[in-house]
């Protein structure tokens, strides 16, 4: 009789173990399927560190916006406004502040290019003085529909960075972390902008 009980208990244990194993495997598979369906995770943008006490100081920068109504590229296409940012000693963080000021929009007559919720995922500065500006896909899509919108975005960022930071000579653009053919369907971003 005892042997029968033991055998029955063992059998039940095996069944329970198999059940739990199956449940866990299925839960993991479902989790993987869900992850597969989700959009790629966007990495958190780099945040500027707080100024390090006495070593931090302010610097004046010129932020460029598109001039309303201007059609031809060249002088007059962009307007500049002066802004004050913290000089961190790190070109990446300085660049980040300048672009953030640009996203905030003009205070005078320039035209706002980006929406207030625009996201710049990352900014890198390479050794050859190339800044890599990684614009989120959503922000790039918000520029869709006009060549001028894309040109304004590209040239306002490029000029704002190159004019203010001697560590940057040219700017290359990524969208959603990738090298794309165009910023938002029209303007080629295969080459860096001077």
């Amino acid at each position: 009789m005892n042997e029968l009980r033991i055998a029955l208990s063992l059998f039940l244990l095996i069944v329970i173990a198999l059940g739990v194993g199956y449940y866990l495997t299925e839960a993991e598979l479902q989790r993987q399927r869900r992850v597969g369906l989700e959009e790629p995770q966007v990495s958190e943008p780099v945040r500027m560190p707080p100024p390090s006490g006495s070593s931090s100081r302010e610097m004046q920068v010129r932020v460029f916006f598109c001039a309303p109504g201007a059609t031809a590229l060249g002088e007059g296409f962009l307007l500049s406004e002066e802004r004050t940012v913290l000089q961190t000693g790190e070109p990446v963080f300085n660049a980040r502040q300048i672009v953030d000021e640009l996203i905030q929009g003009p205070e005078e007559e320039g035209a706002a290019i980006f929406r207030q919720d625009a996201t710049i995922r990352q900014i890198f500065v390479l050794e050859d003085k190339t800044a890599v500006v990684d614009i989120s896909r959503k922000t790039a899509d918000s520029l869709a529909g006009g060549i001028r919108m894309e040109l304004c975005a590209i040239h306002s960022i490029t000029r704002s960075l190159v004019e203010n930071l001697e560590e940057i000579d040219q700017v290359r653009f990524l969208v959603g972390g990738k090298q794309e053919l165009t910023l938002s369907g029209h303007v080629s971003i295969g080459e860096p902008f001077l």
Partner: peptide, 15 residues
């Protein structure tokens, strides 16, 4: 052939 979209409403006409 495209239609344009500008950051400001003052720009008009064909480009």
């Amino acid at each position: 052939l495209h239609l344009g979209r500008a950051p400001d409403e003052t720009l008009r006409g064909a480009l």
